[in-house]
Write a protein that binds this DNA or RNA. Structure first.
Length: 582
DNA sequence: GCCGTTTTCGGCCCGACTGTTTTCAGTCG
């Protein structure tokens, strides 16, 4: 029986938290389970292995009790408390609590008073006007429940939008508001500002010389499909692409407070406020209240908010309660000097028409040069890609010559003859070693057989990392944002192998991948692994389009310029390749 | 259930909104 993955353990803890909430546990205990679940989900080493050694308590938010619960899950495949509570509360009840407006308290009341234990039973009872007999429920509650069921018949939660789609909507709206004569400051807030993988909605915070005029202009934008409510304080709207956008207009004196509040994350704000309370300060979106004086400090900037708490300014990408508050004391000595888009000098993962790309070697090279890069690796798919877009060994030999010819013909950009080699299920590669040796650069990736167990998948990838001619591992976890879970993988072992062999790990900048994810990129850099940020471009316009997301992922992973190999000039980068260090 | 520049016990963010309420609990972000 294979160990549960971190994802399995996180799901189990979150479920137990939900069950305890239904059972009427105090909310702090429930929150403790949810915090621990997130901590396990973000961990870069095997939590099952950690728990076997009694060391799961090293994770933030995991104490002695949860160490025991995790160990029970690892050793017996179940947690006794979960088994007990599942028998007490039907699964449909947990689903009911996910409906907007219906929480654990009210859902449980419906179950105990009326025996409602599923979404179907709930619909029938609301339609039969049987809910209004209960204390705390009325006709309006029935109406709201039916509306919620209508909006999400299977109780599914609202889908999040991948960041590039959200920004494609948000950036032009912000630009339009900034261009409006009545606006002063306009900023995107929320998870979009933190450059998270995906967003639920968009929040825009603004100051204005004429708030009414700015709100009117906002709701009249061509992107806006409908408006749920508006006034001089702001408006709630929905775009034609189905994304909710909230605009809040605030007095300049409180702009810093409001922007900080709505940028979040929730976990960051809670931790920030908790630490403030210990100093007798209370932080809200309206200001910082000082217990000692009774005065509320209003802040025009976020810098002023953090300064009021004795903290250095914290970049939005770091605001996830992953140690940034501790790092921001003492003038921010512990905060990293984050990498920026300007720091990238090369791209080591791009495709041409030789495989599934849309442009030629020359076209891709010139586009990379135009994007500001001074070197580019051509890495078409290898021999077994399939779908008729593979490059058999003979063709790769010719491709090497073509890249060399193009390199000589073009000024201002150095080209590397490379390949994106498939990692076969057994960990071998699909080109002979003699051919791989002739390349300037090889990146190895998994494109098939995703369904291996964690042990097999990790062995497979570690074998590729240990291969002498593999310079980097491409999109290491295989995840697709909001679309595909990562394959089961012990990322800790992958990082260890990469550090030991001098193999780079990629942050694939495709906004649907962003792989390595931020938390793993951070763990890898801490372990001394060189990160390489790549576009995985399949056409010329991709270079500019995706750099933003690769850099954002790196910044969310606390990476500096020094952590990322392709910030180096060409000659120094070349010496850092594994094949150059043999 | 976790955790400690007050603490190993007693706290654990802050405010808005809603629907049902004669003063507030539950839910949400």
């Amino acid at each position: 029986m294979a160990d549960p993955t971190n994802s399995d353990i996180a799901d189990a803890l979150a479920e137990l938290g939900d069950l305890y909430e239904l059972d009427g546990a105090i909310i702090h205990r429930v929150v403790a389970y949810r915090t621990a679940a997130q901590s396990v989900r973000d961990a870069s080493t095997s939590v099952a292995a950690l728990a076997r050694e009694g060391r799961a308590t090293e994770l933030a938010g995991v104490g002695k009790t949860l160490q025991e619960k995790i160990l029970a899950l690892v050793e017996h495949a179940e947690i006794p408390a979960t088994v007990k509570l599942r028998a007490k509360f039907p699964a449909g009840l947990v689903q009911m609590t996910r409906l907007p407006g219906l929480g654990p308290k009210r859902a449980r009341m419906l179950y105990e008073a009326l025996g409602i234990d599923s979404l179907d039973a709930l619909r029938a009872a609301a339609e039969g006007e049987r809910l209004r007999k209960l204390k705390g429920f009325g006709p309006k509650a029935e109406e709201n429940i039916l509306a919620a069921l209508e909006a999400a018949p299977d109780g599914e939660v609202e889908r999040r939008v991948v960041l590039d789609r959200a920004l494609a909507v948000g950036d032009p709206i912000v630009a339009a508001l900034r261009a409006h004569p009545a606006s002063a400051e306009v900023e995107l807030a929320g998870s979009a500002r933190r450059m998270a993988d995906s967003c639920k909605d968009l929040d825009i915070i603004a100051t204005a010389t004429d708030a009414d005029a700015l709100v009117e202009a906002f709701v009249a934008l061509p992107e806006i499909e409908s408006v749920a409510g508006s006034g001089s304080a702001g408006a709630r709207a929905r775009t034609h692409s189905g994304i909710k956008v909230d605009l809040r207009v605030v007095a300049p004196e409180q702009f810093g407070n409001l922007l900080q509040h709505f940028t979040g994350s929730r976990a960051h704000n809670m931790a920030l406020r908790e630490s403030a309370v210990r100093r007798g300060l209370h932080v809200s979106e309206y200001g910082v209240l000082d217990d000692a004086t009774g005065e509320t400090l209003e802040c025009t900037s976020e810098e002023a908010v953090y300064a009021a708490l004795g903290l250095a300014y914290i970049e939005p990408e770091l605001r996830e309660n992953r140690g940034e508050l501790e790092a921001a004391v003492d003038g921010g000595a512990g905060l990293p000097k984050l990498i920026t888009e300007r720091d990238l000098r090369g791209d080591l993962h791009a495709h041409t028409t030789a495989s599934d790309g849309k442009n030629s070697i020359e076209e891709m090279a010139l586009a990379a040069r135009d994007a500001g890069y001074s070197y580019l690796a051509m890495t078409d798919h290898s021999a077994s890609m399939g779908f008729g877009m593979d490059v058999p060994p003979k063709q790769l030999e010719r491709q090497i010559e073509l890249v060399k010819d193009a390199n000589e013909a073009l000024d201002g950009i150095e080209l590397l003859a490379g390949s994106e080699v498939n990692i076969m299920p057994d960990g071998s590669l699909d080109y002979p070693d003699e051919l791989l040796e002739r390349l300037d650069w090889a990146i190895a990736s998994v494109h098939t057989s995703f369904r291996l167990g964690e042990r097999e998948m990790t062995d497979r990838i570690v074998a590729a990392i240990e291969h002498p001619w593999v310079d980097a591992l491409g999109h290491p976890t295989g995840r697709k944002v909001e679309a595909r879970r990562p394959y089961p993988l012990d990322v800790g072992r992958v990082i260890e192998a990469a550090a030991r062999t001098g193999t780079m790990l990629e942050i694939n900048a495709n906004p649907d991948r962003r792989d390595l994810p931020d938390v793993y990129a951070r763990a890898a850099a801490q372990a001394g692994v060189r990160i390489v940020i790549n576009s995985d471009a399949h056409r010329v316009r991709t270079f500019e389009r995706v750099r933003r997301y690769g850099i954002a992922t790196a910044r969310r992973g606390w990476l500096t310029k020094a952590d990322v190999a392709n910030t180096l000039p060409y000659a120094r980068f070349m010496k850092l390749r594994k094949r150059a260090r043999r």
